[in-house]
């Protein structure tokens, strides 16, 4: 895996929503990851606009992405349009929740 977008997506699986017990990728919180020059642009959401763990998740996103090779800058944009819905949870995430 050499594409910084794939690497970033994989690394973001280390960030766990402490209430759901799922990583933020399988939870469907990462809407988009784009590369723009030496920067990564990430569109991210929370399960609710009032999510109390939001700031802590953002801090963790910053922490896990700080060492991605070839990337000098990461912009995380928190968006609520479209709002998160449970349909965004991945099949792997659903299996974990059901278990």
């Amino acid at each position: 895996m050499t594409d910084p977008i794939d690497i970033a997506r994989d690394m973001l699986k280390q960030v766990i929503d402490p209430e759901a017990g799922l990583n933020i990728v399988d939870l469907g919180l990462i809407y988009d990851i784009r590369r723009k020059g030496d920067a990564l642009e990430i569109d991210m959401t929370f399960t609710t606009e009032a999510c109390p763990v939001g700031p802590s998740l953002l801090a963790e996103v910053q922490e896990v992405l700080k060492d991605v090779q070839g990337i000098a800058r990461v912009d995380v944009d928190v968006v609520f349009d479209p709002p998160w819905s449970p349909e965004r949870i991945s099949p792997e995430g659903r299996a974990l929740l059901d278990g």
Binding site: G54, P55, V61, R73, D75, D77
Partner: peptide
């Protein structure tokens, strides 16, 4: 490396008492 979450992080810490 610069990391930005400009639209949300501002003031987030002060909201956690």
């Amino acid at each position: 490396m610069t990391l930005v979450a400009s639209s949300f992080l501002g003031g987030a810490k002060s909201r956690l008492l």
